[in-house]
């Protein structure tokens, strides 16, 4: 068999695999288009350094980067379901004297803890950089406490969401693509990269419907702003708490699937 025929067969096999993996097919195309629309519009119309405090865009980015750390950590933590499933360890855990929910809860709490600690590490490093000028309007300790609560709620929300996705998508590649397809746009119109105040109305609507916006807003009030935030702390807490516990509980309802 010639090398050309072998390459052709491999090409055909991989193309078939992508066509069968619809999540990979669509998200690869949709994600760049969504970023083009959302990020492009945001930067063109919303990003003016004079709109952020003292024109200090680096400091402005800190709350968004903390949210991003939680987001990535949740995605990676939930990917461990696939590792455990593929290694066979998941079936060993499911055969232990515990219900599947206990196993899921343990793994989800691990994801929340890891995500929370990583986000706090980002905050600690950012706070230690001299060029970063955090406001700490409520004081450093209360500000850290407030940020920690926001991070915990975000981690619960995102880990719950990731668990729901992981229970429905068969492959780890598909899982990552779906997470990217959903979470990157959420991140970009959450106010993490540009202030929400001066965005066009349609992006403001999307930002208001975006749970991540409330997390970023809460973090911004805790460490960056000297005001009450875009939504206000009570609304931030209400939305984040309700969604975090609802999604986390939903995630625990999803059976990881038993493979013998």
């Amino acid at each position: 068999m010639s090398a050309l025929a072998a390459c052709g067969a491999l090409l055909q096999r991989d193309v078939r695999a992508v066509l069968r993996s619809r999540s990979q097919l669509y998200s690869t195309i949709l994600l760049p288009l969504m970023l083009l629309a959302i990020l492009g519009t945001g930067v063109s119309q919303g990003l003016d350094p004079t709109l952020v405090r003292d024109g200090d865009y680096a400091t402005f980015l800190v709350p968004g980067m903390i949210a991003m750390a939680v987001l990535f950590s949740s995605t990676f933590s939930s990917a461990s379901y696939y590792r455990d499933r593929d290694s066979g360890l998941m079936r060993v855990m499911l055969a232990s004297p515990h219900s599947p929910r206990v196993i899921l809860l343990g793994k989800a709490l691990a994801g929340v803890s890891i995500g929370g600690l990583q986000a706090l590490a980002v905050l600690a490093v950012a706070a230690a950089i001299p060029a970063i000028d955090l406001e700490w309007q409520h004081g450093v300790i209360p500000g850290i406490a407030l940020a920690a609560i926001g991070i915990a709620l975000l981690a619960l929300l995102l880990n719950g969401f990731a668990q729901v996705v992981a229970s429905r998508i068969r492959t780890m590649q598909g899982f990552h693509l779906v997470m990217n397809l959903v979470l990157f746009p959420l991140l970009f119109f959450s106010g993490a990269f540009f202030p929400l105040e001066d965005l066009p109305a349609w992006l403001k609507v999307l930002a208001t419907a975006n749970p991540l916006s409330y997390g970023v807003d809460l973090l911004r009030v805790a460490i960056y702003d000297d005001g009450s935030g875009y939504f206000g702390l009570p609304l931030d807490f209400a939305v984040l708490t309700a969604l975090a516990f609802a999604l986390f509980a939903w995630g625990l309802q999803r059976h990881p699937g038993y493979h013998w």
Partner: peptide, 8 residues
């Protein structure tokens, strides 16, 4: 189990 079920 029949198949290896260990985290490498």
């Amino acid at each position: 189990f029949q198949e290896t079920s260990l985290d490498p």
